[in-house]
């Protein structure tokens, strides 16, 4: 909790409407939550607008996560990413994700927990305070960005479903609907996209369920309406457009591990000392940084710089084997 404070460090040029972000911090969770939920639903019904970022989220609490980091622009974040459900190129998601309908949206909670059910996204998020957290994002393909997410801590949401002692892993699934996600008609991955965390990883305070970006409702191509953000892991762990959360006793096979187990593992922790079989992970290209002939590079940090928060999760674990 020590990380969350009230401060308004926000560089104004990054925000369209800073005023709306500043929460009093004194309001009751219930009323704040209701406001957040209501605005989630206020996402534009215009398909073109859904890929440009939706309406502003209300009552977002600023946090100290990422204090001092300068986020990448909304344009960079929302126009350059992978989301194979909408194409394999990094420009494809922004071009094609307008077919996704992020509302209404339901999430099925199943497995080793007491409160199974099919939840409406609004009810799912409403009880919690939305927070802005600026996190590093490190793609397994050796580039990085800094992203101001808005979301709720995954742990609070998961605890509300009362997982049993048998819940060793949390398994997430993306929507499976080739009509909304046209590339699912092609056999390029084993759909639906599946990811997982150990229960300890999922309960780590860094783990976030994001519903927004730059204070706005998450654009479709970034995983609307709700996605996972685990900043100490490679980008592909951050599963998008989640429709299913399953508490499991056994370790799932995540999609990229299924695709190429020698290259992509279950843990996928950012680690400069364990190379990808085909490229080095020691350095990363900071998107848009530097100049044309001298693009900015930075040394990749163990756990993407979140060592203090997560290294205890891997005490005694051979990170070379468990990549």
């Amino acid at each position: 909790m020590k990380k969350i404070t009230e401060h308004h460090i926000t560089d104004e040029k990054y925000y369209l409407n800073r005023r709306k972000f500043i929460s009093s911090g004194l309001g009751l969770t219930a009323t704040i939550g209701a406001g957040a939920g209501g605005l989630l639903l206020a996402n534009s019904s215009n398909s073109a607008e859904r890929t440009k970022g939706g309406s502003l989220l209300d009552k977002v609490k600023m946090t100290d996560y990422g204090k001092g980091l300068k986020p990448h622009s909304f344009k960079q974040i929302s126009n350059y990413n992978n989301f194979y459900e909408f194409g394999t190129g990094k420009r494809d998601p922004a071009k094609n994700a307008h077919t996704l309908k992020p509302k209404p949206w339901h999430i099925k909670v199943s497995g080793e927990c007491l409160k199974k059910g099919n939840y409406d996204l609004e009810d799912f998020i409403a009880p919690y305070q939305l927070e802005q957290r600026i996190y590093r994002f490190r793609c397994v393909e050796a580039w990085s960005m800094i992203i101001p997410w808005v979301g709720v801590p995954l742990a609070s949401v998961l605890k509300s479903f009362e997982p049993t002692s048998k819940a060793k892993y949390v398994v997430f699934e993306t929507l499976l609907d080739p009509e909304q996600m046209p590339w699912q008609k092609r056999p390029i991955l084993n759909w639906p996209y599946t990811e997982g965390l150990t229960i300890a990883e999922a309960m780590n305070p860094l783990s976030l369920l994001a519903v927004g970006l730059y204070g706005k409702v998450l654009p479709n191509q970034n995983g609307a309406p709700i996605r996972l953000v685990v900043p100490w892991k490679y980008g592909f762990k951050n599963i998008k457009s989640i429709v299913s959360i399953n508490f499991s006793e056994t370790q799932p096979i995540n999609t990229w591990q299924d695709q190429a187990a020698k290259e992509y593992g279950f843990y996928a922790n950012v680690n400069p000392n364990v190379d990808h079989p085909r490229w080095s992970q020691a350095r990363e290209r900071v998107i848009g940084g530097g100049s044309f002939f001298a693009p900015e590079k930075r040394k990749t940090e163990l756990f993407n710089g979140y060592k203090d928060e997560v290294s205890h999760l891997y005490a005694g674990v051979d990170l070379r084997k468990n990549y």
Binding site: K75, Y80, K90, W143, R285, I287, G288, F292
Partner: peptide, 12 residues
């Protein structure tokens, strides 16, 4: 594309 600033990650 370079001069119009259309590239987000010129390297790739």
């Amino acid at each position: 594309d370079i001069f119009a600033g259309n590239l987000i990650d010129p390297i790739e």
